[in-house]
Design a protein around this nucleic acid. Sequence first.
DNA 1: TACCTTGACATTTTT
DNA 2: TGTCAAGGTA
Length: 995
Amino acid sequence: MIFWRSVSPAKSRSAPFAADDRQREAIEHVHGPMLVIAGAGTGKTSVLIQRIARLIEQGHARPDEILALTYTVAAAAEMRDRLRALLGKKIRCTTFHDFCFDLLKRAGKDFGVLEENDLWIHLRKRIPELHLEHYVRAANVGQFLTDLLDFLSRCHDELLTPETYANYVTKLERGELAIPRVAKSKDQLSDDEVLGRCREISRVYALTEQWLLEENLGTFGHMMTRAYALLMRDETLLAAERARSPFILVDEFQDANTAQIKILAALAGESANLFGVGDPDQAIYRFRGASSAAFQLFGRYFSQTKLVVLGKNRRSTTAILQCAFAVIDKNPPVFSSTDHTSYRRSPLQSARDQDAKKSEAMILSSPVDAVSFPAKEAEASDIVRTIEGIRRTTHCQWKDFGILYRTHSHRDELAHELADRNIPFNIENMDVSDTPEVRDLFACAAVVVDVGSDASLFRVAALPQFDVDPEQLRSALRAIAGQSKEGTAVPLASVLGTVSGGHDVLDCVRRARDDVSRQNAKTRVALELIAKLFGSGVKSAAVQTALKFAAEWENKPTTKSKELGEWLEYLQYFREAGGAIAMTANANEDAVRLMTVHGGKGLEFSHVFVLRATTPSFPASYRETLVEFPEALRDPDSASAGDDKTLHDQEERRLFYVAMTRAKDTLHIYGKRGIGRDKTPAGMMREMISNSRLQPYLRARAALPSQPELIDLAAAADAHPAESRLAAWLALPAVGDLGARLSASAVETYETCPLQFKLEREWRLSRELHAAAQYGAAMHRVLRTYFDSIRLGRPKSDDELLKIFCDDLAACGLEDDYQRELYRQQGTQQLEDFLAASHVSLPPQVLHTEEWFEVQVAGTKVAGRIDRLDRSADGRVNIVDYKTGKARSQQEADESLQLSIYALAAQEKWGYRVGDLAFYNLQGNVAVMSKRTDFQLEEARARVLDAARGIANGNFEPKLGFHCSFCAFRGLCPAREKRIPHSLAPAPAELDPLD
DNA sequence: TACCTTGACATTTTT
DNA sequence: TGTCAAGGTA
């Protein structure tokens, strides 16, 4: 055995690096292409570093002739440091992107870099110029941009130009190729429609590329595509680059995409001194464009490739490795049979257990702990108790525990539980947008720019440093809302001025605005200034993260004035684009580490916990993209076997494998109990538990029942800082009887979330009406005019009606011109269709249009307005309700509380016998007919009664759920605030410097 | 073995 | 609000 010099003192490997035979083979390799398949924990980076050292020491290469490429800045820096420590020389270690960007820069072809969200925002702002017909919806203008950008980024990964795509569309038009999928599978489109969509995609792609070129901008993907194009175009440059880096080494090779591999192939040239190290079973960035077939592709480009497989794992116990292998080996082999290699996946050998056996030491290898739990809370409580138990027996540090999960939301219960038990922990990449501190700061900024942003001003008024009397404010708001006409907004600022303490708020806003303008402060500075003036915690880690985010924004190529107003507009789009402001945790802190599995890649922990290992949480279920990447456009080299769904499932399995192989000593996997006959957790846990060969390595058990009484109440109070004053405001007992008069939609709102119901009625904050609601109102008005005119015997002409609608819509104050235009087109179309259908059918005998009612239902006053009541041939009346939004289904019509209540009202108020109930969908121009039995009407009464009782009893608990994303109070709701427990906040000194 | 109903879930994020 | 798949039924 040969001993290499130790390269990693930081990792406390004080012993010299002892290479085994396989590692030595890789390290001693000199010329020609080589691939090293280095499984988890087999020392792949060490091998790479030792090979560089040897190339130099043996005189094969000068230090400057070596190029080492990685994917992350951190990995590149670490490698550079380790090499400097080992050789005392500087080696070129850089990321792929930096390398390509530098190449472009030297050629004078660099550009301003747009991140994905920035490109989204860029296109969103110019969306009218895209002239979209298919991929746009009036109600949500930017809805399909994400789907389109996904497709374009996929094109980049495959080095596909707009011209190639345009050619593809031409071939489609000629009928030479199979029609691709350009919408959800369930939407059956005509061939013409598909071609229209393809043309639209083609236009968007060409236009996007053109705009970026005109403004000298590009994405991270462009770093690759443009560098590749440059190398292909410029032979002299290519020759120079080849001469500059005769030896190229690539770490994490499994993350390479097609474009990157082609660049590597070009750079390596004839001599092909290309050395790739990685683990194909840990490829988890396919969604980022990494080709799941990177290793195969390498082999095809370089047929002389030597393959070395490292199989000795120095990290984990045999039990962990056996279980992990059982999971990963369900994936197909890494190489297909055509790849002429004898490589077959085999279980990694635990070097630790082998050594222990040799020295006849006791093996303290515990089996993998497979825990099933009945509910989330039980999972969190069992984990915490297990952690406490391990720490008691092994005296390890908190940072020896790593908690891994598939999605961020999976950690919430555990974070609470850890905080309750006073265990220090930190969360990697937590989104700070919903922390109270950041919400406060953003609200303050919004009112400084525009005091008329009511939701923000409301939040600011509730800050504890002001002494606004909430009861007084509430009654003032209610009084004014009661006087003014419905829909007329009363600015909160004007009301606030009349309430005690309100002046201070407005003064502070004014002062902040003056300071900002006097100092001509740009966003980052302005935010800090505002934070200080309003007394919100500048020192909080969340606020620091937000400030850093703003500072970075100021340096973006698309940022113009750098002023607060521009930033707030950006922030709004950023949210729409799905952006998150992620906080980096301090890895050195002695705290339990919580992160996603992606975040855990490359790390190791003595004790690993994997959460929610149940389908469809982890593995997550497949969701198809809106636009499929057509088979015909795939690079023939990179086309990997299997459809997207299969590839997705395989990647989930690799992700699970990555999670498991992070563990050194113990591994605990948690999954929700199955609901069928098989009570084991569905998914990979079930697979492992039922695998008899894993019996010695796996122990399945049920989670201990949670014992809430054990919680240290003092610690819990300490961990959750006192509720914000806003929360206290919103929790004030209701004024008056909110349930005195209900409507169908009020009952429904109460059923979805009692708190939302209360806030809507109580505070009467003027809310910006949704565009969809304004459109709906305009549409209702014109229909009413139409039926009224018929009843009065003076029917209006179609043109008159269309004009009425257009004028109405123009007057109703939709801010976005483009959106208004979309609605105008949509409304005109729907109206024309509706009128055309009306003209050919027998006109209904209309009794009432938009008729108000107020009746007693189950002892409660219920009010509403019926769109249309017709007399039917059999003497009954039919009720029609127009729907301007998404078309309602039969089931929705059958179950609608609104229609039931209308039926009850028609009976009560006028004594009508009710016949048909209809939702008339203007979209598609079809009526969905329904009926009500007495029993169903009784059910409706019961629903009203339930809601009325709940309201009377003062039950206004928030109900969290998917509906929260559409709730107007989302930014205020205390239930949706994410607090950072004490242990999370790093000391300010450890934060990144701001500039 | 093929449906259909019901319940549970809601992405990940190097550069 | 949609979607997927588990689990039950024809």
